[in-house]
Design a protein around this nucleic acid. Sequence first.
DNA 1: TCCATAAGGATATCTATTATCCGTAAATGC
DNA 2: GCATTTACGGATAATAGATATCCTTATGGA
Lengths: 164, 164
Amino acid sequence: MQMRNQVEWVLHCCSLLAALPEGGRLSTKALADFHGVPKEYLSKALQSLSQAGLVEGSLGPSGGYRLAKPASEITFLDIVEAVEGKGRNFACTEIRRNNPCLQGHDPKGPCQVARIMWQADAAWRRELAAVKLSELTVTLERELPADLQERATTWVAARLGGSV
Amino acid sequence: MQMRNQVEWVLHCCSLLAALPEGGRLSTKALADFHGVPKEYLSKALQSLSQAGLVEGSLGPSGGYRLAKPASEITFLDIVEAVEGKGRNFACTEIRRNNPCLQGHDPKGPCQVARIMWQADAAWRRELAAVKLSELTVTLERELPADLQERATTWVAARLGGSV
DNA sequence: TCCATAAGGATATCTATTATCCGTAAATGC
DNA sequence: GCATTTACGGATAATAGATATCCTTATGGA
Ligand code: SF4
Ligand code: SF4
C-alpha cells in the first residue's frame, strides 16, 4: 500500500510554484527538468492538479503553471487527493454477503471493522489537511546552503514564464 | 493507494478466531468457506499472520489456526502490518538528487515534505494501534439478529478443530 | 504565420496484486 | 505402520494498476 511517485513529484512542484515571484509561471518542461522526472508523465499529474483547481495552466510561449490560489489556502491533503484520489485506503468488498450460512440476511451500513479502518483513514487525512502549502517554508530549497539556493533561484528565473 | 483485500479477510478471520471457545481451532478451509474467499490465497495471508506471531497453526486433522495470544494483546495495527507490511505509505525516491543545478550537494536526512507525510502516516498507525482485537465485540456476527447468530455459531462448531 | 505550450486520448511497458498449483512435513486416527 | 488431513513454502499464471511514451488538438504570444 504505497502512494504514487506522482505525489512526491507534485509536492515538490507545488513547493516550487509557491516560491515563484508574483505572476510567474513554470512550464511542465522546466518542472520536469528541475526534478529529473519524465515530462510527459509529470504532465498527467499536473493536469490532475489543474482539474482539482489547485494550479492554473496557460498556453503559448511563456505559458506554464502557477498556483490557482494563495499557498495559504492549499493543504497537503488537497494536493495528495488531487493525484491519489479521494477514495479511502480500506475498501470493503462486502465479503460478509458471501457467507454460506447467513444467506438472506441483508446487512445495512458498514460494520465495526470498516468503521475502525475508516476512522484511521480519516485521522490520516486530518493530519494532511492541517498542513498548508504555505507552511512548507523549509522546503528543499530553503534547507540548502545560500550559494546553492541562489543557483537554484537563477536556474528557475531563466525559465520563468508569465507576466513577471 | 488502497490496501489489499487480504486485510479485510484477515480482520474478519481474526474476529472469528477471537470468538472461538478456549482451545478451539479453525482450518483455512473453514475460514475460506465462511467468508467466501479463495482458500489457497487466504492461506498466504494466514501464513503472514502466523509469521507475525499473531496466530498459531497446527497440523493434522482437527488442526487449524487459533490466536497466539489473548485478543486483548492484539491490535488492528498488528493485523494490518502483518499482511500489508510495515513500510510507510509515502516513499521518498530522492528526486532532489536528480536536480541539475544542485549537483554536488549531498543532502542529509529527510526533508520537510517527507517529514509531514510520515507524520500523517504515523497518525494513521497510531489510530490503528489504539484498537484492540478484543474491542471488536460488535463484529459481523454480533450485529446479527439472534437466530442468524446462532446459525453461524453452529456452523462454526461443526467445523471446530483443536482440543475443545 | 509560426512556435511553444496545456490538455487529453491512445497505447505500450513495467510492477504489484490476486490466484492457482504442487511438493513437503507434521499431526491425527485407524 | 498407513492413509488422511492439515499448515507451510516455492513456483507460476492471470489480472489489475502504476508508469511511461506518443500523438493530436486548441490556444496564446511573437
Ligand atoms: S463486515 Fe465490515 S469489513 Fe466485512 S465486508 Fe461487511 S462492511 Fe466490509
Ligand atoms: S526533498 Fe523530501 S520528498 Fe523530496 S526526495 Fe528529498 S526527502 Fe524525498
